[in-house]
Amino acid sequence: MNNFLFTQPFFKKNGKAVAIYFLVAIIFWFVFLVIIPQFYMLDLSFRTNVPPLARGGPEDYYTFEHYSHFIFGSKTATDAFNFVDLGVFGRTIFVSMLVTIANLLFCYPIAFYIAKIANPSTARLLIVSLIIPFWINELLRSFALRILFANEGVINNFLTGVGLLDQGILFITYDIGLYTGLIYAYILLMMFPLYNAIESLDINQIEAAKDLGSSSFRTHWRIVIPHAKPGIVSGCTMVFMLTVGALATPVVLSSPNTLWFPQLIYQWFNMNDNWSRGSAYSIILLIVSVIFVLTMMRIFKVRIGEIIK
């Protein structure tokens, strides 16, 4: 096994005590924290929802009911499909994609500016300024937006106070607050991969391109963006995954009558005490995430190691 798995005999290379520590730590992590819980959740998603005591009893059998509920709705429903849940799901994915694209568009000029144009001390100042909001809890950042966007919030109070409007705009009800908040929440996870990727581009390449008469737009399109591709893919993947799986921001900012998909999971799980269905919906979310990562890797031909560094 040694020679199959490792370049050098594992115990000899690390010494017994350290080797045991390595093995225990890694197995504990991979097996007990990562793999078994996921598989158990997968298993649970195919089982009936029974109280803990009935687990293993006759009521507890394998079924597709949770997945079919997601698509077709409850057995007593009149609609052909579960439009509510499917709608939440579709909206979550669609909005997440838009949020990702918006983040990319917003961040690119800044990342380029910091990496290649600003002088080093300004660049450092900007980077530190970027990092500070990132360390503030996502909930509190959303809360800050909530103060702005609430019906009697700062913006509405200001607008009505100045006399621009007679009545406040319903930012929260129309989910404007939510979308702004989602863009706000993970924007730095787009910024940093982008910045790192652009930063590593040799300035001579840009200058050479300009020297050859390439326009600014063309230089970006043909030189900078291809070079920054791994960073772009990495940023987009991270932002999309986090947005699709976001719970904190929707909890604070979504309007009472719309749900974000993780909120739906939360509902099944905690409110309706239907863990099996919660698990099934989680699996669906997981599948979306995995498909997204794989698609990004396939389309842009990057390896997983380049996405997360």
Binding site: T237, V244, G245, L247, L286, S289
Partner: peptide, 8 residues
């Protein structure tokens, strides 16, 4: 694990 949604 960092690619898994946190809720999961």
């Amino acid at each position: 694990p960092v690619l898994f949604p946190g809720v999961i």
